[in-house]
Design a protein around this nucleic acid. Structure first.
Length: 278
DNA sequence: AGGCAGGCTTTTA
DNA sequence: TAAAAGCCTGCC
């Protein structure tokens, strides 16, 4: 089906933003991007046709019930960018202009929990490999609309059932025990991720950091990317540099509520693209 | 209480 | 060899 998207939307920027790790560009080098996107148990081929038009190989029902929400298409990112005052905050303004097209996907909280535990102390290619290996190890094998097989992101029970040896084979290193503990916590009901969607940020971070292997940074990523708390503000090594170099007198969180997480994504991507040193 | 050093698997540049 | 969207433990 063909869909027209008139708000900010850039597949390449979303794929490289570091919030999703199962986007595969199937036409590298070409001007208009085409992607194979795996999310949860679903797989979508999405091709840019230009002028904001996209071809999605799903049914209208699948689009309405899942993909439209997944891409957060009911939100107005242009309006969110327009809140930035160029004179008051030239850095954030430049970042948002340059990185316009990023959106905060509505991904599954369980998938984000495991994915961001895996992400700690690793670069993006390594994260992608491990997520893929974990899906292969215990996710359901399926066939997409082009006849290619893929693996759904596994359920908590499937991950909890893996031995440390099997997790080690996914190259999870010292994170193996964290992944097991998180799967057990979800399976046993020690944590209710769905309920956290409605919780306030302090309670959310408290509940998430109670999971073995989840610190403040990973909890913030789960909150932002998995619970769609778009005010959550993950502080990693890059954001630390941004705050130190661009906002030595403090960052104006209050001014940017309730979208701090969206602005964080613009700044994060901008700094990475700038290749800032030190 | 809150801060800091050291260690941890593996990959990437 | 250092760094990578860090966290845990032990110590002060």
């Amino acid at each position: 089906m063909i869909k027209q998207i008139n708000d900010d939307f850039d597949l390449d920027k979303i794929a490289e933003s570091g919030q999703c790790f199962r986007f595969e560009r199937i036409n590298p080098g070409e001007q208009l991007p085409a992607y194979r996107i795996i999310a949860g148990a679903a797989c979508l081929y999405m091709t840019a046709l230009g002028e904001g038009a996209y071809d999605l190989d799903c049914t209208a029902e699948e689009y309405e019930s899942f993909w439209s929400g997944y891409f957060d298409l009911q939100a107005d990112y242009r309006a969110i960018r327009a809140r930035i005052d160029k004179a008051a905050d030239p850095f954030l303004y430049a970042a948002a202009e340059s990185e316009q097209g990023i959106r905060i996907l509505r991904q599954d909280p369980w998938e984000m929990l495991i994915t961001f535990i895996i992400s700690q102390n690793r670069n993006i290619p390594a994260i992608r490999r491990s997520v893929e290996m974990l899906a292969e190890a215990c996710g359901d094998q399926r066939v997409d609309r082009r006849g290619r097989s893929y693996y759904a992101f596994p359920a908590p029970e499937a991950v909890a059932a893996l031995s440390q040896e099997q997790l080690k084979d996914c190259k999870l290193g010292y994170r193996c025990k964290y992944v097991s503990a998180a799967a057990a916590a979800v399976m046993e009901g020690a944590i209710d991720l769905t309920a956290l969607k409605e919780a306030d940020e302090a309670a959310t971070l408290k509940a998430l950091t109670a999971i073995y292997g989840v610190g403040k940074k990973v909890a913030s990523c789960i909150s932002l990317f998995g619970l769609h708390h778009v005010d959550a503000f993950p502080i990693d090594v890059w954001v630390k540099r941004i705050l130190a170099q661009e906002y030595p007198d403090g960052y104006p969180y209050d001014r940017y509520r309730p979208y701090n997480g969206i602005y964080q994504q613009y700044m994060f991507a901008y700094y990475r693209h700038m290749g800032v040193v030190k």
